[in-house]
Computed example of a mutant assay.
Amino acid sequence: MIHITELIQKYDDLDVFKEFDKEVANNNDRGIALICGSIIDEILKELLKDFFIESSKIDKEIFGVNQTLGTFDAKYKIAYYLGLINDIEMKNIVLLQRIRNKFAHQIFGISFENEEIKNIAFNFKIPKNGYIPPVIPFQKGQASLPKIDLNPIKKDTTPREKFIFTFKYLYMSLHTRTMIGLSNQREELKDIMTADQSIILEMDVINKALKENNECTVRIGKLKADYEEMLYRVTQILETLKNVKTENEEETESVFLDQKTEIKKALNKMDEDEKRIDQYNGYFGTILKIQQYNHAVIKNSIE
């Protein structure tokens, strides 16, 4: 459950754009690239922390230097594979990181107008109508609502502007998700499972597999009956056509022979599927009997 004070604090964080715009006005290209990279790095950390269990050790043991998620790379990759960011966001973060690294490692002669930086920035992509401006204008007493630009990257947008627009898009997307994350935080696993409970869970899985296999067998049986009916009708038609030998009937006979061949192939495939399912059922049935015996032994041994 999101506490109201936490929610208010999260909304207050939107003031970061006021400070960011000041930094943009006062910093050169290198400063902007490094600042944006650091902010996305930090918000990825917060996004992950909102998902992980609550622990006072997490900063040191997970996000510290030389720890599992101590690098920018590790943060965005694990966020993607946990389903916390989407593919477009990850690709934009990778591009932003590449530009940040260029500025961090090249001391002289680098700006957003460098060809290499321009080529990277060209690939920034904000989904159509996906950009939320930091400020939405309020028009009091107007007959119609104002229109805002939800697609700020144009053909003539400079690489520097593309970088800033993409940063703001990422910040707003991830910031929104950190608010949602407050209600999705995982709890520390405290359940202690006994041996008999483990066996019961395994038997549930086996029973589910057996049920699904039996349902497949029933579906195959119904389908086979339909195909066999079709095969019977095609065979009857072919028998009738044997007494007629005009050119047109010969062409028709060829069509029905092809149908008969395809139906037989389908029936053979169903026979193979049935045999395979029978094998699975035999395997799962044997495993289930073993697990039932194991469960009985464990139950008998519980103190």
Score class of each variant (00 low, 15 high):
Lys57Phe: 14
Asn119Met: 15
Ile120Trp: 00
Asp73Lys: 08
Phe63Gly: 01
Met230Ile: 13
Ile153Trp: 01
Val24Trp: 04
Glu202Gly: 00
Phe138Ile: 11
Leu174Asp: 02
Asn86Asp: 15
Ile88Gln: 03
Arg233Phe: 14
Ser198Glu: 13
Leu241Trp: 01
Lys77Met: 13
Lys299His: 09
Glu274His: 03
Glu250Met: 08
Ile40Thr: 03
Val234Asp: 09
Asp59Trp: 00
Cys216Thr: 09
Ala104Glu: 07
Glu23Phe: 13
Asn66Ile: 09
Leu34Val: 07
Lys265Thr: 06
Leu82Ser: 13
Gln292Pro: 05
Tyr76Cys: 02
Asn151Glu: 12
Thr252Ser: 10
Lys260Met: 06
Glu115Val: 06
Pro152Lys: 02
Asp149Val: 00
Leu288Val: 04
Asn248Gly: 10
Ser198Lys: 15
Arg177Glu: 12
Lys162Ser: 06
Glu6Tyr: 09
Glu19Asn: 12
Leu182Gln: 00
Gly83Phe: 06
Thr194Asp: 15
Leu170Met: 05
Lys91Asn: 11
Arg233Gly: 09
Gly31Gln: 04
Asn300Val: 09
Gln291Phe: 13
Asp271Leu: 02
Ser144Ile: 15
Met179Leu: 15
Lys75Pro: 00
Lys264Ile: 15
Ile298Asn: 01
Gln67His: 10
Glu253Asp: 11
Ala33Lys: 01
Gln279Asp: 08
Phe112Gly: 01
Pro133Phe: 02
Ala25Val: 08
Asp196His: 12
Thr217Gly: 12
Met230Arg: 13
Glu253Val: 01
Ile40Glu: 04
Ala225Tyr: 13
Glu272His: 00
Ala266Cys: 01
Leu48His: 01
His175Leu: 04
Ile85Cys: 02
Arg276Asn: 13
His175Gly: 04
Asp50Trp: 00
Ala266Met: 02
Asp258His: 07
Gln197Arg: 13
Glu249Ser: 13
Thr166Asn: 05
Thr286Lys: 12
Glu239Gly: 11
Gln142Glu: 15
Asn151Phe: 03
Asp50Gln: 15
Arg177Thr: 05
Ile99Gln: 03
Asn66Ala: 15
Arg100Asn: 01
Glu6His: 12
Gly285Asp: 07
Phe122Met: 14
Lys222Ala: 14
Gln139Cys: 11
Ile277Leu: 10
Asp271Gly: 00
Gln292Ser: 11
Asn300Cys: 09
Glu113Lys: 06
Tyr76Val: 06
Phe17Ser: 00
Gln142Thr: 10
Gln9Ser: 15
Gly83Lys: 05
Glu188Phe: 07
Lys118Ser: 02
Arg100Cys: 02
Asn66Asp: 15
Asn281Ser: 09
Glu23Trp: 09
Pro137Cys: 09
Leu201Cys: 08
Asn281Thr: 08
Ile206Lys: 04
Thr5Ala: 08
Lys57Ile: 07
Ala209Ser: 15
Gly70Val: 05
Tyr232Glu: 07
Ile180Asp: 14
Pro127Gly: 06
Asn207Gly: 14
Gln279Trp: 03
Ile287His: 06
